[in-house]
């Protein structure tokens, strides 16, 4: 397991977030604190509506926390360190797949875009999208669009990846393959990853740590260190025990909230 010796890549302390609605105040996150070390792969698990996307929005600097502090790379201003893949694919409908995945380098400069082309080709091939590179998003399936959004996020070339259910719309087989690709990215490029998922098994297979969020208002119920990705055997009794323990914890927090 990677030691948490270096300074945190990302640190959240006493985070509260609520939305004021017409019907009253909706508390979404309550006293959330955690730290992520550089190179860690954290899976964020929690029931629907527990504020996972909200938390990522705050980390990405897109929303302000109501209370609490967010520190990224030791400083408060974290934007240039983070690449964020949101729950919707957010591809630009007027751009081909190729032009979509190269958006981030293109925004940096034309030269950067040129430089990133090789990598884009490599990723598109790995994700089985290369022959569709001239297609528009409307011509692609939901899963294909999601994969494209993931490639675009990778091509942002940021230290920290925030991924909000990146494999939500793909079948089990494709999901497996994409998970392996993501693992390879994480290992070879030494990124810090925070992955939101509903899939307990996915969390166990990929993450070095699983953070469990209660149902709304989201609080951190437990933070579980798991075996490094490649030593997890999906069918082992240990994995099975971990899985049922996580599900139990989530259920309990759900019952407590009601």
């Amino acid at each position: 397991m990677k030691a948490v010796s270096r300074a945190s890549a990302l640190e959240v302390e006493g985070l509260h977030k609520s939305y004021s609605l017409r019907t009253g105040v909706l508390s979404v996150l309550e006293d959330v604190s955690f730290a992520v070390a550089p190179g860690e792969f954290v899976a964020l698990l929690g029931p629907s509506g527990s504020g996972k996307s909200t938390l990522l929005n705050i980390l990405a600097g897109l929303e302000r926390p109501g209370r609490g502090t967010v520190r990224i790379g030791g400083s408060a201003a974290g934007l240039p360190l983070i690449a964020y893949m949101q729950q919707k694919d957010l591809l630009l409908p007027w751009r081909t797949l190729w032009d979509n995945v190269l958006l981030a380098p293109e925004i940096r400069s034309a030269a950067e875009r040129e430089r990133a082309a090789e990598k884009a080709r490599e990723w598109l091939k790995a994700f089985h999208l290369f022959e569709f590179r001239h297609a528009y998003p409307a011509q692609l399936s939901g899963g294909m669009r999601q994969r494209a959004a993931l490639i675009r996020t990778l091509l942002c070339e940021r230290e920290i990846l925030l991924l909000d259910e990146p494999f939500g719309a793909v079948d089990a087989l494709t999901r497996r393959r994409l998970q392996r690709h993501l693992l390879r990215v994480w290992e070879t490029l030494d990124k810090t990853v925070i992955l939101v998922t509903h899939d307990v098994e996915e969390a166990i297979l990929l993450a070095t740590r699983i953070v469990l969020l209660s149902s709304r208002p989201g609080r951190i119920v437990e933070s579980i260190d798991v075996l490094p990705p490649h030593s997890v055997r999906p069918q082992s009794a240990e994995t099975f025990r971990l899985k049922s323990r996580i599900l139990e914890t989530l259920e309990q927090s759900d019952a407590a909230a009601l």
Binding site: L62, L79, P80, K88, L90, E106, I107, R108
Partner: peptide
């Protein structure tokens, strides 16, 4: 223009001019 797309451009460090030319006008 989808505000989420504008936020996406912001996370990518796009300037207001880039947001206009690459996002708002095409949209």
């Amino acid at each position: 223009t989808d505000p989420d797309l504008v936020r996406l451009f912001r996370t990518m460090g796009a300037s207001p001019a880039q947001i206009l030319w690459k996002l708002r006008l095409p949209a």
